[in-house]
Nucleic acid binder design. Structure first.
Lengths: 217, 217
DNA sequence: GTCTATAAACCGATAGAC
DNA sequence: GTCTATCGGTTTATAGAC
């Protein structure tokens, strides 16, 4: 979907997306959306037809505009990394760092990721968009890469390996509030994030029998 | 909460818990709950006072009655496993297997786990119960164990290590439907579960510098 | 404790003026 | 394309009979 200047439709998409991400579809009313977007209530049905159609449009917009570079993409732009075991290990570490730093960057709003998370846990009519735009598109390359790193590996094994980063990243994004409460309201700071990056990268590197970089020891 | 014979209150707790787990708090009406429990609508307010109080009661009931044995508990019942590196590695593998087999056992209803998952992703007034009964209680022992296995390790590192099993288990429980759709409606079968168990166990074992059991090679 | 009836508020959606 | 007013339905919660 191509969107130019911030018109009513775009404003509605973004306001609705953030509200749905924060509270869930059923907890958000069309009046809340109209208020947040500073748009008349009737505009929702004029532009989208229904609340559900607005949700699907917002979800589709987010999926198609989110770019979360995986390991395979990094290796495509820096092919020399794939030539040596040390380079491949470094590429895995860089991917973990890029992915998690980006996801937890406080200057970047995280509602788009959380909206996707909601569709994962409570699928709606937007589920095919999720599967097509996120699951299939984002996973496929890294699955193929794993099977290149470990010839003969099963699809399941490849799927689980490339999921180690994403599943854990998603959990800590999702569980931020209770985790911080558990830690006595100490926020998940950069130290925590560094530990997570190092642990995930190290385990993924060791699982494909690559040498662990010195900085992870 | 001690509950004897299946009285109205218990029936309501269980019916409400399952519905909330399946659809979320806002998507479930008190009429749906009363219908499922085959209880009169007024009974909800008579026994619990409000829909929100019923949710909190159901959540508390689930948290207090769920027993998910961790690694530390296994070692307490079989202390001889902790004596050798091979035994410690085996204990980690057994914990992963027990945890995941139990979570994905088709004969066991998984709505209790999914209800907890919902409170994690969308905290409500029941959040303190979640933190106290699940996060603090379930995590503490394994965190302490990790620091025994790796003296001098930081709290964050220990937290992330013991979370490797739980975070990934939770993701696959949560994402079952879209994952199966991505796999062309092929279910997450025992082969997939075995791959997950093996991969998670292997990475956790290697992270604490223990020897990888022969069966995981 | 269980039931019916209903109050009061809110919901998504629509009609029609501008 | 934006606005107001409102419809028909559902929601939680309650009052009161039994």
């Amino acid at each position: 979907m191509d969107i130019g200047a911030p018109n009513t439709k775009t404003v509605l998409l973004l306001a609705a997306g953030e509200l749905f991400a924060d509270h869930g579809f059923d907890a958000v009313s069309t009046r809340m959306i109209a208020d947040k977007a500073k748009v008349n209530l009737g505009g929702i049905h004029y532009h989208f037809g229904s609340k559900e159609a607005l949700y699907v449009a917002a979800f589709k917009y987010v999926c198609e505009n989110e770019e979360r570079p995986g390991l395979a993409k990094l290796l495509n732009t820096q092919p020399e990394l794939e030539k040596t075991p040390e380079g491949r290990a470094k590429a895995i570490l860089m991917t973990c760092r890029n992915f998690l730093d980006d996801l937890f960057d406080p200057s970047k709003p995280d509602w788009k990721s959380r909206l996707i998370l909601r569709e994962i846990s409570t699928p709606s009519s937007a589920l095919p968009i999720l599967v097509r735009e996120v699951f299939t598109r984002d996973f496929a390359e890294d699955i193929e890469l794993y099977q290149r790193l470990k010839p003969g590996a099963s699809y399941d094994e490849a799927m689980i390996w490339q999921g180690m980063l994403k599943t854990q990243a998603i959990f800590y994004l999702m569980a931020k509030t209770p985790l911080e409460m558990m830690r006595g309201n100490k926020p998940l700071d950069q130290d925590f994030l560094d530990s997570l990056i190092r642990t995930v990268a190290k385990s993924m590197i060791m699982l494909v029998d690559l040498p662990v970089p010195e900085e992870l020891r």
